[in-house]
Structures are given as C-alpha cells and as structure tokens.
Design a protein around this nucleic acid. Structure first.
Lengths: 334, 334
DNA sequence: CTGAAAGCGCTTACAG
DNA sequence: CTGAAAGCGCTTACAG
C-alpha cells in the first residue's frame, strides 16, 4: 500500500508537503511546481489515501449516516418512499465528497453507538422518530436532520410537508364530488405526528362542512388488513362512499384487496391516497392522491445537513414543503 | 471521548487487557473477574470504540461495500429490484456486525479508489458489470460478489438466476395459449448477459415450436418509449399478439402507455413480465411474470461474501437460482 | 493471564 | 513556502 511517506521519499519532500498537496493545496501553500510533481508521482504510484487514518487524525470522517427504522415485518426499503429518498441522499452526498453509511435501527441507543464509533459528521433520519428525538439529540452533538417529525425539540432540523393540508385537500375533494360519508385508514397515530396531522386535516375539513367522521370509520391498518377493512366498510347499510388512505403503498394494498373481495373502485368505494407515486398512474382506476415531492425533500435535507456541517454555528433549520392534490379516476361523483 | 486508556487507568490494568475484553475476550485470555470489572467500567463511562482507529491498526474495517451502477437518468433506487436487494443486504450484514456503505458508480476506477480508501472487507455489486468485471477483480483483492453476471471471469463469485429458462418459460406460456406472433422488449443487450439470455431462451423456445421472432419485433426500450413501441406493434396488420418484457418495471410502463394510447391488454396485446413484483398483483389485468426470488438472491450473496471474508482461501462460488412462471391475467387465449 | 513497545497512515499545531 | 514532532485510538507481535 502506497502511503504519503512513500510519495514524500520519491519526491524528496516531507510528508507534510505531500499531505497538503493531496488535500487540494489550500491557498497555494505549496509551490505549484512541487504540487505538480507530487501529483504526478501520486498518480503514478496509485496512491489512495487511507480514510481510517485520515478520520483518526482529523477527527472527522466524511461519513454521513442515514438512519431508517428497521421494520420487523420485512424490508425497510420495500417502501418506495424510503428507497427513493435514500437514493437521492446517496447521490447528493457522494457528489459532495461524502460517504454514506446506512443503518436500520430498532433501538435508539444503537444509533448513538454507531454514529460515535464512526465519527459520522452528520445524520439524516428517515421515518418517524418523534419519541426518541430528544434522546437522540441529547446524546449526539453532530448535525442531525429529521424528516416528517412533529417533535417539539427545536434544536434539530426537520424537513417535512404540510400533512394537515394534505388531509384538508383530500376532504375537500371528496366533498366537492358530493361525498358525505367518509372513512380514514392508516397506521395507528399518536396525538401528534404525520398520521395524526393528516387525520386532523381530513376530519376538521369535513367537520367544517358539517360532515362527521365517526370513530369507527377511522381504521387502523396495523390492526386490520385491507381486506378486513373493506369487508367492514361495505357490510353496513349506509356505508362510507370514500376512503382516505395515508399512503399510496397502503392504497395499493386496498386495490389488491378490492380485486380479491370484488369491491368496485370507485363505484362502491372511492379512494384517495397520499404520496403520488408513479404507480398511481398505472393502477386501475388511476389513483387520486396528495402529491409530495420526495426528491425535493431529500435534496433539501441534504442541503441543510451540509450547511450545518460546514458551519457548526449555523442554526437548525426546519422546512415544510407544500403538497397538492392530483386528481385521477379513483373518486366518483355522487 | 472515552478511550481504552481511560478505562485502563480506572481499572488499574493495561490498555491491552481492556482491548482484549472489549473484543470479546477470545478464549478467556483475561480472567473473568477482571473482564466483568472492565465491562462495567466501560459501560459506566459510555465507552464507544473508535472504528477508525480500529480499522487503521487492524487493517480491517468491518465495512461492506455495496456498489450500484449510477443511472444517469435518475435514481438507482427507483427500481424496486435494487432497493429490495439493498435492503436485505443491509439487514443481513448489520446483524452479522458489519457496516454497509453504498456507492453509486459511473466509472469503475471510482470503485477501486473507494474500496481501498476505506479498506472495505468485501463488496457486492448490483447491476451488470460484465465488461468491467475483469478490471475490478484485478485491482481489488478483497472478496467480491457480483450479481447477474455472465462474465467468464471465474475468480469472482456470482449470484444469478436462470435467465435463459425465464425466456423459455415465457415462450412456452405464450405458445400454450395459442400465440404464434410474438415480440420482445428490453434494454439493449450485448451478445451475453442477462437480457441476451432471456432473449435467447425466448427466441430459441419459439424457434423450436416453429415460431420465428423477427428482428424488427425485438424492441430496444432505450431507443423507443413504450408508447412508441406499442404504436409500432399495433400499426401493422398481422401484428404480434404477445410481448415479452424483460422486467416488471418496464412492463408497468407499458401498462401506462397502453392506458394512454388505448391499447387493450390482453385483448390487443398480451404481456409477460419478469421479476414477479408485488405490483403485478394490482395491475389491471394482473401481470403474468417470471418469478425470481430477490430476497433469496440477496441473502445468498451475503452468505457467500461472509464465507469468503471469514476464510480468505475459500474458493469463489457461483450460484444460479431457479425461476418459475406465475400465471395471471395478462395473457389471453387465442 | 497480563503488559510494554512499536506502529497503522494520516493531520494538527507549531516553528522557521 | 516547507518540515520535525507529537499524537489521533487502537491492534499486532512479542515477552514474560
């Protein structure tokens, strides 16, 4: 393995001079003549800097950590939302000269151990960490960027979207098409958080129009399968005519269940999803959905993180991106 | 930051003893009494080993590299195949005590630089690297596992599937349903490789049944959009009644194009895809597809890599997993 | 069972 | 513009 020392010997200079040149020769601290010579020797000898040594000496690693919640029931990257997001992060960070390590986490204490062990320079969290966010923040001084968080911890940066508005848009669309009996389905929600916001926006917009959203029409997709929920919905006489689902991924499971159980979308049940994935355009019927811009979200998260890495005194920034409704064919007129 | 030295001082032993204990005290090299004491002190002080220092001294990093081909036209993780695969790798490697770095690569020389710089212990390549594989192998002595490679370099391990059989199965299915005019669509293929194999299996099985596959019915999805291909196919009088597409991702783009151009699947054109993604079950009509087991492929790739890391003399192993056809509704009877 | 010495390959901080 | 010294936090290899 070729080291700085080897190059220094060949060039007849000190290791320090080589080190400076290999690090871009900031401000021409070395003469251009020696720099050129050193670069050509390094090239010729196939020099590759040792990142571990660099990290150890410089106390900085060029490593960006991406943390996803490990889903016990399978693959955290099975969700297109997460994988798209991760893809953009890797692309962006790589272009800026960083290395990306990915970690699936079950317990938040894992994270701290891992971040410290590698001296990660910053971390981006995908998925909801609202309950752990304070602990994570307190045990890690590096810049952290969360996504979709509704935590009240203000010392971390967050990139999210207007989930409440998403719920409102879904409600308004159903109402505008004449629906007055509506249901909601999503993972269980705490009092705050992405799902709670979408639900709040949805139910409050309905309430404003005098349309109630009964408790028993708020379905928990962790407890009941889409097929069970469909059975439940269609069993009652005056059943809901529209269902707002908190993600396109789950919405697509409803399509599958509808196919199996013979429920007609949108005739028996209209559907609105959330995310606006490419998938929506090939479903039959095409899925009306609340659009969020994952790429934008990902690159904003990277920008904020990089800014805070570059300037340790930079304030934490949070950002809420807009959403809009994309009308397709899964909502019928009543 | 707490170091081995700090713990050693507190415990009244040498750094070496602490080091041994922290590394699992292999073979009881330290007395259990001191081991217990050291562990409790380490715990109490919140000791986190410094991975950079470890890597530097031990010349081994616990880093596994995953290399994906950077797609110029977007996000390498937009393809569910890649993201599922990556997800399993991360999960598996993490459980075995390794760290995963992900790299999107354009030029193969990037790879070598990166692998060396971090002293990665092994690498898994997702996507086709057939042309670069010899160079990659020659410039890197660490264990490498490729996927879906048809390279003749035998010093690397490879995990693939029976692509040829996949093509045969598609042909046979079309034939069994009475189709005699068939087309093929996929990315451009070299003389060898995944796509070439699928095409060869398809066309040879057809030929055996006396059904020709004309050159102009072999479509290149990089040159023509699905909409253009559909237009071309349906324009001629005696047009193909069935189309074999090399991935479900591309097949889904044909569904979208069919919707826009008004081509009826399967009435005007029957379709068979490849991969058997969950998506297939919610398309209308549901998509008949050649099944491959991505999870199996990913975990086999990890197994092989770990075995070769554990034993540097372990031979390279290659593996070809089986495929089968999953019949759904996208192929009509003729 | 335990430890002192040397070194992994770099950078920091200082001196000139 | 250049360099000698010290050190980052570990492990290897040896000695006892």
């Amino acid at each position: 393995m070729v080291t700085l020392k080897d190059i220094a010997a060949r060039a007849g200079v000190s290791m320090m001079t080589v080190s400076r040149v290999m690090n871009g020769n900031q401000g021409g601290k070395a003469s251009e003549a020696t720099a050129v010579k050193i670069r050509s020797i390094a090239e010729e000898m196939g020099y590759v800097p040792n990142s571990s040594a660099r990290s150890l000496a410089a106390r900085s690693s060029k490593i960006i950590a991406v943390v996803l919640r490990d889903s016990t029931d399978g693959n955290p990257l099975a969700d297109p939302y997460s994988s798209m997001f991760l893809g953009i992060i890797i692309q962006t960070m790589q272009r800026r000269g960083y290395y990306v390590m990915v970690h699936f986490v079950q317990d938040y204490s894992d994270i701290t151990f891992w971040l410290r062990s590698w001296r990660a320079e910053g971390a981006i969290f995908l998925g909801v960490f609202d309950n752990e966010i304070r602990n994570i923040r307190n045990s890690n001084r590096i810049p952290l960027v969360f996504t979709d968080s509704y935590s009240n911890v203000r010392q971390v940066s967050n990139v999210g979207i207007d989930d409440y508005k998403g719920g409102v848009l879904a409600a308004q669309h159903f109402l505008s098409r004449g629906h007055t009996r509506l249901a909601f389905a999503g993972p269980p929600s705490e009092t705050t958080g992405v799902i709670a916001e979408r639900l709040a926006g949805f139910s409050e917009a309905l309430a404003q129009a005098g349309v109630p959203l009964p408790e028993n029409w708020i379905y928990n997709t962790s407890r009941q399968s889409p097929a069970e929920i469909l059975a439940d919905i269609t069993s009652c006489d005056e059943h809901p005519t529209g269902l707002f689902v908190t993600s396109d991924l789950i919405a697509s499971q409803f399509y599958e269940a509808a196919l199996q159980t013979g429920v007609e979308i949108p005739d028996q049940l209209s559907l609105i999803g959330f995310d606006d994935f490419p998938l929506d355009r090939i479903l039959t019927p095409t899925l009306t959905s609340v659009h969020q811009d994952v790429s934008e979200k990902a690159s904003r998260a990277c920008d904020i993180l990089l800014r805070r890495i570059a300037d340790p005194n930079a304030p934490s920034e949070s950002l809420m991106l807009d959403v809009h409704l994309v009308e397709r064919d899964s909502v019928r007129d009543i």
